[in-house]
Design a protein around this nucleic acid. Structure first.
Length: 550
DNA sequence: CTGACTTGCGCC
DNA sequence: AAAGGGCGCAAGTCAG
């Protein structure tokens, strides 16, 4: 166990019986050497600390990698919301402090920022409470796995933030110049946008139009005789008007400029790496969030700029249809697991006779997981329910539970949030007019919306658990693939996108990495679903550029 | 002026 | 034709 006190670090051994050895104080700058020595010793160690973002960046900067940790901030958050954790066992004097603890955003070069609220917390006591809650839990095994996976995810996230994703600014700039024209002076529009703007204004007969203003654009479209209620691209695509093609092109390129243009490059790419920060557990379902650079929505358009170093390759792996496969596994639905034996689950459903076409299969499954009840996907439900009773039954029950205001949970025991406040308040949150928030129709609408959330929560959350287990195992396999250097000189995880990983590896090790990625996927399936036969086939590509995968 | 909200769109 | 779940981000808009 590590904790900060003043400018020193205190180290103690936590035994399995809950006892704590005497604290040893060491100067902060001696910590990397101490951790490195313990990591090199034959006896495995798990570091228990308040929050990985407060400890690990400095260790990585010093070239020290740790094998295992318990991130008490993240594990606390999971246990506090889990229906399988006795909250009374988690209660302590500083519980509110743990509830409120936030990750440290930037990698602060100073190891010990002043007045950190984390310094007031007692990690040994918190660890004891968590262990007690685990021991008393009816689902302790699942929760223990979840806590380990969550903590491992914290290590992965810190490592990916540390190494970054290889990014060629020159390739990115060529791409921008090719599509937009040369970089304009600050405040100006690139030449291509300027030209499109002229075409749009002429075609709509609106000389002063600023298409970046949705309200202004909507008025101009309506004055040009176009029957539209909003200015979304898919709405405009339906129209036959000479102003529409340049407008769609303008919107697409303006999006590129503002989201991933020259200023994005300046803000997020340094020393040939895209550096964003990942936030494990940043989403209620357990998915990661990111802050900075929109890491989880890097458009495919700019992925050609993600290029492996000379002599290195990217191994890009994603699991096809992760969530329906997870649904098959967690519900124990053998018919859907049978369909999941195909590398394309939707084709497997067609082969199994559940639906006639792949398109129907996809529509129906997405509707079942997201709560689409109208139109095409709604009409698919009776057939899917007959064919896959357990899988469809599981999401339906999650939806009903949410509509009753109950908590639902993932396979490993992550709990959904309780609906906050009244249904009427929820209706306001959903954008209903306040004066109507109290009507019965609005409350029913809000209830159904919450049901769609809990319906999706169980699947999305369990998918996130599979992905965490996948990465946790892969991280260790990659480390064992060898090399003596620090993380960045060995095969390492460079990016993660919900169901896809990008590994940066020396070319000579690429085949080994492919094998490791596949082996880890098998391990994750076994960890979550034991012997239940549900497959998680991967699409794996060894490429120079991310854009060349898939 | 700042900050909160809306709109739209990128990703899964 | 989407829809239906989860996000982050940027520009416009508007209230204080």
């Amino acid at each position: 166990m590590l904790r900060r006190r003043e400018s020193a670090v205190e180290v103690a051994e936590l035994a399995d019986d809950g006892t704590t050895s005497a604290l040893t104080g060491i100067p902060a700058d001696a910590l990397p050497a101490l951790v490195a020595a313990r990591e090199a010793a034959p006896a495995a160690v798990r570091w228990v600390w308040d929050d990985t973002t407060r400890w690990y960046p400095a260790l990585l900067a010093a070239g020290v990698r740790v094998e295992r940790c318990t991130d008490l901030r993240l594990t606390h958050a999971v246990l506090r919301r889990s229906p399988f954790a006795d909250q009374a066992l988690l209660a302590g004097a500083d519980t509110a402090g743990w509830d409120a603890l936030q990750p440290v955003a930037a990698a602060d070069p100073a190891l010990f920022p002043p007045a950190d609220p984390a310094d007031l917390l007692d990690p040994a006591a918190e660890h004891r409470r968590q262990q007690a809650a685990l021991a008393a839990s009816p689902r302790g095994d699942g929760l223990a796995l979840l806590l380990a996976a969550e903590s491992s995810g914290a290590l992965v996230a810190a490592e990916m933030t540390h190494t970054g994703l290889p990014w060629r600014a020159d390739v990115h700039e060529r791409l921008l110049t090719g599509l937009l024209g040369p970089r304009p002076a600050a405040g100006g529009r690139p030449a291509v946008l300027e030209r499109l703007l002229g075409e749009i204004r002429a075609a709509l007969g609106a000389p002063g139009l600023n298409p970046d203003s949705p309200a202004e654009l909507l008025r101009a479209l309506q004055q040009a005789g176009l029957p539209v209620a909003d200015t979304r691209s898919w709405t405009l695509e339906q129209l036959d008007h000479p102003g529409v093609p340049p407008l769609l092109e303008y919107k697409k390129l303006m999006r590129l400029l503002t989201a991933n243009g020259w200023s994005w490059l300046e803000a997020w790419v340094r020393d040939g790496r895209f550096r964003s920060s990942f936030l494990p557990g940043g989403v209620v379902t357990g998915r990661w969030a990111s802050n900075g650079g929109g890491a989880l929505s890097v458009p495919t358009l700019i992925r050609p700029a993600a290029v492996a170093d000379d002599g290195w390759r990217f191994v890009v792996a994603d699991v096809a249809q992760l969530e329906p496969r997870v649904l098959a596994g967690m519900s124990g639905d053998t018919a859907m697991a049978e369909a999941a034996r195909a590398s394309d689950l939707y084709e497997g459903m067609v082969a199994g006779g559940a639906v006639a076409t792949r398109a129907e299969a996809k529509l129906g499954i997405l509707g079942a997981m997201y709560g689409g009840t109208r139109g095409e996907s709604g009409r698919m439900m009776p057939r899917l329910t007959r064919r896959y009773p357990r899988a469809i039954g599981l999401v339906e029950e999650a939806a009903r539970a949410g509509e009753r205001g109950e908590v639902v949970h993932t396979l490993l025991g992550r709990g959904s949030p309780t609906p906050t406040g009244s249904w009427a308040e929820r209706a306001v949150d959903l954008g209903e007019p306040a004066e109507q928030a109290g009507t019965r129709e609005d409350r029913d609408r809000a209830r159904r919306a919450w049901g769609r959330f809990t319906r999706n929560f169980v699947v999305q959350g369990t998918g996130a658990e599979w992905a965490l287990c996948w990465m946790a195992d892969l991280r260790n396999r990659l480390w064992r693939l060898g090399g003596d250097g620090p993380l960045g000189r060995r095969p390492h995880l460079a990016f993660f996108l919900h169901d896809e990983v990008v590994v940066h590896a020396p070319e000579a090790l690429a085949d080994d990495v492919v094998a490791a990625v596949r082996a880890s996927a098998s391990t994750a399936g076994r960890l979550l679903f034991g012997a239940f036969p549900v497959d998680f086939p991967l699409d794996v590509a060894v490429v120079r550029s991310w854009a060349d995968a898939g």
